[in-house]
Computed example of a mutant assay.
Amino acid sequence: MSDQEPSRLELEIELVIAMYPEQVDYNAKTRVLNFTQRGATVQLRLPESYPESGLPDVIAARDAGKSDVRARTKAAVKQLGLVGGEEALDAIIAAFQQLLESTLTKRKLALSPTTLSGITKPGYPGIMIFSGPSLAVTNHVNTLKAENWQAFQVRYEEDKLWEFAHGKGVKEVETMAEVVKGLELESAKEEFLKAVGIK
């Protein structure tokens, strides 16, 4: 048994199988999930990047009479208005009192996620902004909180993707001016300034 924590995909599959134990079958090698209910079947292929980005592809769908209903199923999924990787997005601003030189491990941890975008500023006041899939943002912030920062506090949370001037990944900057400059949208700049008590 591995000590490694299960991935988000593994957790989602476990949850679906727990909810529908007799109806769901998943092949991790082919990334194909089969769902059967009262004679009807749906077969989905999960892209390699799922769940961080992309949506499952409907590769087969049959009703109880064995008629092909792939087109109807795909249309129903399309009507949900989901965008790959953006089903649940968050932007979080966390502030902490001070990040000292002796906490290099914490600084590296703050910069570590590859599935998120963001900006961090060490010193006083310390600032961290992360944006990306909601679960990934929440997990990263909870990991950071567990490091016992001095006066760590989430100041702002929004169900919306924030964009940064540097693009993807988390970048460390030195000044508050650089934090503001790194935010692409004017609305994000306004929300940031309000969250840290400058506006």
Rank of each mutant, 00 (worst) to 15 (best):
E147P: 06
S2D: 12
I93F: 02
P113W: 11
K78D: 13
K145W: 02
I59D: 03
M1V: 08
T36Q: 09
M19C: 09
G123Y: 11
P51W: 04
E12G: 01
A76V: 06
T30L: 09
K181Q: 11
A64V: 07
Y156A: 00
V69N: 02
L111Y: 05
K160N: 10
K66R: 11
A95L: 15
A40T: 05
G197T: 03
G169K: 04
S134I: 02
A61C: 07
A75C: 04
T114K: 11
Q153R: 14
E178V: 01
I198N: 04
Q23E: 15
R107V: 13
G85V: 12
T175C: 06
A71V: 09
V32L: 06
T114H: 08
T143P: 00
I93P: 00
S117A: 13
A40D: 03
P133Y: 01
A177D: 13
A151S: 11
L193K: 14
A151L: 12
R45M: 08
I17K: 15
D57P: 00
V83Y: 11
I127F: 08
S117T: 08
V77S: 11
F152G: 07
L55P: 04
S102A: 14
L33S: 11
K108M: 12
H140C: 06
I119C: 04
V141Q: 08
E22K: 12
V83D: 14
D68E: 05
S2G: 12
A151Q: 13
